[in-house]
Design a protein around this nucleic acid. Structure first.
Lengths: 111, 111
DNA sequence: CAAACATGTGAGGTTTCCTAACATGGTTTT
DNA sequence: AAAACCATGTTAGGAAACCTCACATGTTTG
């Protein structure tokens, strides 16, 4: 229904390409996964698959590490940011629910 | 300067993923390349790399073939379409040149 | 009917990816 | 300071993914 999530989030890039795209070593990329900073999907055979969003995230992570931030700290930041995001999403959804209850169409024209 | 070409056109997808995304066989994908309908890049080691745009094009090609159109015919269509596109691009660029000559700023504020 | 088309399949070989382990030079922590 | 942890490199052995080439086949098309 909402938000046909597209190119940016599709997990279709193998680790070698990610290496080329980011300039990181495969070792680093896998290590950041081990530290739960990044979550590739897997092919049936077990190969990692990343999205462009993942690639961008990896670059951000690498920058922070270069600034002396530890993976552990980065992870906490990310959890905090994500929690806030979830709260915001929920709030938005509840407001939308209210609007639908008041004005929403039943069997309305589905654009 | 113009049009930071992004996700959709970056060649980062290996043939196995393209197979999964399109439902075509690798044989078909390679054959359409042989018939000059699609142009993947190559990794240093020789592996093919496709873009999302390529994936969409492959689906279109497959549909036409399913409708009985031959690769040879599809190629002609594509060349025709591309030629028109080039003409349009050129025209647009010339008009833009005229505008710049008349109103364009030298050393103007760069957005 | 001969040639071309579109696709499957198999062989043999190279590239890419996987995990696991050990090495190392910096930082903390005790 | 010794022990522990951090981030990364490197190596080994093995499996998955990819490559080209060739042959087979059923289906158009000239």
């Amino acid at each position: 229904m909402a938000n046909d999530f597209s190119y940016k989030d599709k997990k279709v890039i193998t680790i070698g390409i990610v290496r080329d795209l980011t300039g990181l070593s495969e070792r680093q990329i896998r290590y950041y996964e081990e530290r739960k900073l990044i979550f590739p999907e897997r092919s049936s055979g077990g190969s990692r698959k990343y999205s462009f969003a993942d690639v961008e995230l990896l670059v951000e992570i690498a920058n922070k590490i270069e600034d002396g931030v530890q993976t552990h700290e980065i992870r906490k930041e990310m959890l905090r940011a994500q929690k806030k995001q979830n709260q915001d999403d929920l709030r938005r959804k509840m407001i939308q629910g209210q609007l639908n209850a008041q004005f929403g169409l039943r069997k309305g024209p589905s654009s």
